[in-house]
């Protein structure tokens, strides 16, 4: 049997039902997987060993992060604030931070490690990242100043908005409303302009 989709199948846009492996690529070495497999999940999968305190975190944060995010994680210029905004999600101008909006602390470990210790940021050890997170929890008024975060107590920390997220429900709440015959004539009696681009005439 051919390993490749037949011409007919390709024309019909169908993929082979059971593809046989082609034997391409090579097995990934454990060290290679360790070098790239950096992701962290809410259940703690992927967290390295380590720990850090609020005090240590304050020092590291001010040294490595504050130039863009501010000493108190309040944000500098258009760089994002990482603290504040608790209770603002229904306001006219909600403020979405780790404390007020993010559902999981693991997301912050993962993101800081993957994107803020290279590029924009500076290298930081696992202990330093735990410490930064302890400091960010403190800056968001979620822990006391003597708090120490570690792999062991990590999943016991729950952010205030964890329950505020739900799975996309457009299929139930919107698609039925917007699936209908469309009105083609005399759909309304009159039309007025209700909004214009600010500063245009």
């Amino acid at each position: 049997m051919s390993r490749f989709p037949s011409l007919l199948a390709a024309l019909c846009f169908a993929l082979p039902v059971t593809a046989e492996p082609l034997g391409l690529g090579r097995v990934a070495e454990p060290d290679e997987i360790a070098a790239w497999d950096i992701d962290v999940r809410p259940d703690g999968l992927g967290l390295p060993a380590g720990s850090g305190s609020v005090m240590q975190g304050e020092e590291v944060f001010i040294e490595k992060c504050a130039v863009c995010h501010g000493d108190f994680a309040e944000g500098v210029g258009r760089y994002p604030a990482l603290a504040g905004g608790l209770g603002t999600l229904q306001d006219e101008r909600p403020m979405r931070t780790i404390g007020s909006f993010w559902p999981f602390l693991s997301t912050a470990y993962d993101f800081i490690n993957r994107a803020m210790t290279v590029g924009y940021g500076e290298p930081a050890s696992d202990d330093e990242i735990y410490a930064i997170l302890a400091y960010l929890l403190y800056s968001n008024d979620l822990v006391d100043e003597d708090f120490v975060l570690s792999r062991e107590n990590f999943t016991s920390i729950h952010l205030p908005n964890e329950g505020g997220f739900y799975m996309d429900d457009r299929a139930q709440t919107e698609l039925p409303l917007f699936t209908h015959d469309a009105c083609m004539s005399d759909c309304k009696t009159d039309v007025e302009i209700t909004a214009r681009v600010p500063n245009s005439q």
Partner: peptide, 28 residues
């Protein structure tokens, strides 16, 4: 799922009631 930054802090849809739709993948 991993619930990473680009599917929670960003690319999630805050509704008027203060709750947030996640995994809004399809483009209407």
């Amino acid at each position: 799922p991993w619930h990473h930054r680009e599917e929670s802090s960003k690319y999630s849809d805050l509704m008027a009631d203060g709750r947030t739709r996640r995994f809004t993948w399809e483009m209407d």
